[in-house]
């Protein structure tokens, strides 16, 4: 039976948290591009919808220490409009702006993309590679959690009942760093990633890789941060041997499923190909800024 559904648009985060706390079947609404589709197809039957977009501090990009804090209700296209953010984290900003269409990106948020917990979420590998964290707020207070620890499986997160992701935080940038994200889709737009790969690299003055984080999406129940892949690059100048070792580590970390969007073989192979490509782009970006 259809339950009665309530709609709330609180002005403050405290109000939102209070509404979520009193009603375990209430759900927060950010961009709504996943949530409303799920509502319409009866995959979600909440008792209340708590629209977060009227909460001022959840909208927009702020400076946070050396880095950035992106409000949970900030649509993806707004990220591009922040020139400093786009210059510092082009991979993250591009990843968020591959989701759906312009229409969708004017609504969709990275926090929503993260909390929807799809293994194929485009912005998540880029955020994980970037070492992003998120500020989780609930009745028990707030905590800062690495982005990679939020999704625990398809459609499942580590958020406790009543908790919301209030913002996503990206560290500051120094010279010699660069990030990138690419995905494989059958068309040029409007698809869910068959495979996605994000890279975030740092280089010393002599061009030696000093830090590397490689994350891949849609190849396991959650986004995978492939430590071995990063390790394969650190200390090298990204010679072919190091790149192949990195790609092999990525392929080994893949544990995908066969589904309508891709086969195990194809996904695994593409993870390696895309990882090499994002590393090349991230290196070029690091070079430009060095």
């Amino acid at each position: 039976m259809m339950a009665t559904l309530a709609f709330h648009a609180p002005k403050t985060l405290d109000e939102a948290i209070a509404l979520l706390a009193v009603d375990p079947r209430a759900i927060p609404l950010a961009g709504g591009t996943d949530l409303i589709v799920q509502l319409r197809s009866d995959r979600l039957e909440p008792s209340a919808i708590i629209d977060l977009k009227r909460i001022e501090k959840l909208s927009g990009v702020r400076r946070h220490g050396d880095g950035f804090a992106i409000g949970a209700a900030t649509p993806c296209t707004a990220l591009k409009e922040d020139a400093e953010l786009a210059a510092a984290w082009p991979g993250v900003v591009e990843a968020a702006n591959l989701i759906g269409s312009v229409q969708v990106r004017n609504r969709a948020t990275m926090a929503g993309n993260l909390c929807n917990a799809s293994p194929a979420a485009d912005s998540v590998p880029a955020l994980v590679a970037a070492g992003a964290t998120c500020l989780v707020v609930g009745t028990g207070g707030e905590r800062e959690v690495p982005v990679k620890d939020i999704p625990t499986g398809p459609g499942k997160t580590s958020l406790k009942p009543g908790e919301v992701v209030a913002e996503i935080r990206l560290p500051g940038r120094v010279g010699g760093e660069g990030d990138a994200y690419l995905r494989s889709i059958p068309r040029t737009e409007m698809d869910i990633a068959v495979v996605g790969a994000g890279a975030n690299l740092a280089f010393g003055p002599d061009g030696t890789c000093t830090a590397a984080r490689i994350a891949v999406g849609a190849v396991a129940p959650t986004v995978v941060l492939v430590n071995e892949a990063g390790e394969a690059l650190v200390g090298t100048r990204l010679d072919d041997t190091a790149l192949e070792k990195m790609a092999e580590a990525v392929r080994s970390a893949c544990n995908p499923i066969d589904d309508k969007r891709g086969t195990v073989e194809y996904r695994t192979a593409m993870a390696g190909v895309l990882a090499k490509r994002v590393v090349a782009i991230a290196r070029d970006r690091a070079g430009e800024k060095a």
């Binding site: 059958p186 068309r187 040029t188 737009e189 409007m190 698809d191 869910i192």
Partner: peptide
């Protein structure tokens, strides 16, 4: 030629009954 197809699951249920996964060409294709 490139992308359109009906995809069924093992129970014979259509697995892509929408424009997300039934991929007609978009303008950028």
């Amino acid at each position: 030629a490139l992308n359109e197809a009906y995809l069924y699951d093992k129970d014979g249920r259509l697995d892509n009954p929408g424009f997300l996964d039934y991929r007609v060409p978009v303008a950028s294709d």
